[in-house]
Design a binder for these strands. Structure first.
Lengths: 228, 228
DNA sequence: ACCTGAACACCGTTCAAGT
DNA sequence: ACCTGAACACCGTTCAAGT
């Protein structure tokens, strides 16, 4: 690959900059270096352009983050296949979402920060469709779908925060949770009996299992509320 | 009140700066101007000191945010009275927490961002105590308490994001939700039947009621899982 | 229409120098 | 020990000037 030669006069880039290219590169940076890694300096240097050029294609950094979030979520949500039952479908959606948030931890906080974005609407729509298929009363369907979504966002944000803290301390994620478990296990058993006695579980537990157990609790509650 | 006089030579402040005073002032700024309003410039000018002085009492901004979060949450959690049943107690805790997050929207995102902080541990401990009182199996108690906490954090972060967006657009919170409702009601009923048909609900619904309905779903699910 | 890159306002943090 | 305030490195955003 040849390096682009320095010209005496200012020259335009040959391969046009596009909004899509900017978003793709942003995603790559976010995945590699986290949310703090995405700066206009890093972005323009990777794209071999000036910082100002990017502003021709995007409004501002929030616009960029929301677009990156949508770009990752949209195909992932669309790919979800049908399931035998609506409850299985919700579980499947939750499961896919968990994996996605695990691979792209920055999505957790981004999705929460821009609630009006299209990705959130599509998520709600999917959840709502399955909720209706379960047969929830009409005046409860919104609360039911919201509860599932809020729970997913809560876990997602938490994963994002853990990933961020682990990155700052330059630790593996598992090692980071180990540190937390150690700290919690040293809490006074008098003051914090519940947390202290469950600290060991932090070391051995599977985030994914816990997440899906939570989904099951909520589903069970929604269905139980419907049939009473 | 007399204005402090300008001296020719550098002089120390007479009323000592304390960590507590810094945290109190930070909370006041956060409540008034949101998370973006808390800068070392705003803080040092309110405290009539230099930016560097603050660093003698705190480690960095994250330390300050976590401390402010704890300072608000600690007394609020401690004040919660006993209830007739553990389920009522959890509902009461959730209700108090919702009001607190409504008054101090910055807590939602801060609490999520620093998961190891003491406020979170205390929340988990309270929830866990009530969960045990409900009689949940030991190998499910952690998942049950976590589910409730993750849901609360999800709603809290969402409230924080809404408050932030409303502030940026200089709108009342209710007016902001109106805008969202209008946008959603204009979605295609073919593509987004669930969201579109529930848009109107956004205008009339009570956030607090929805939140507590979600808590009830989860509680019902936890109890149902236990007795099966 | 699209791009360049310097300039701007602002941020968190540090630190030599003061008392 | 505690405080001052200038300095530093870095950030998002703007904009006159180029093609």
């Amino acid at each position: 690959m040849m390096k682009r030669e320095q010209r005496e006069t200012q020259s335009r880039r040959k391969n046009a900059l596009t909004r899509e290219a900017i978003i793709e590169t942003s995603i790559a940076i976010l995945d590699r270096d986290g949310e703090k890694g995405l700066t206009f300096q890093a972005l323009s240097s990777r794209l071999e352009t000036g910082a100002g050029a990017i502003y021709w294609h995007i409004n501002d950094k929030d616009d960029l983050l929301a677009a990156a979030c949508d770009a990752v979520l949209h195909p992932a949500i669309a790919t979800i296949v049908d399931h035998e039952s609506p409850a299985h479908a919700i579980r499947g959606l939750a499961s896919s979402l968990f994996d996605l948030l695990d691979d792209h931890p920055w999505i957790g906080s981004t999705l929460t920060r821009f609630p009006t974005q299209i990705a959130m609407i599509r998520l709600l729509e999917h959840l709502g469709g399955h909720i209706r298929a379960v047969g929830v009363h009409q005046n409860q369907e919104w609360a039911a779908a919201s509860t599932l979504l809020m729970y997913m966002l809560g876990v997602g944000s938490q994963n994002a925060a853990n990933a961020q803290l682990a990155r700052e301390q330059a630790l593996e994620r598992s090692h980071f949770l180990d540190e937390v478990a150690s700290a919690w296990s040293q809490l006074s058993a008098d003051q914090y009996p519940f947390v202290q006695s469950n600290a060991e579980r932090m070391r051995t537990h599977d985030d994914r299992d816990d997440f899906l157990t939570g989904i099951d609790f909520i589903l069970k509650g929604i269905i139980a509320a419907g049939i009473r």
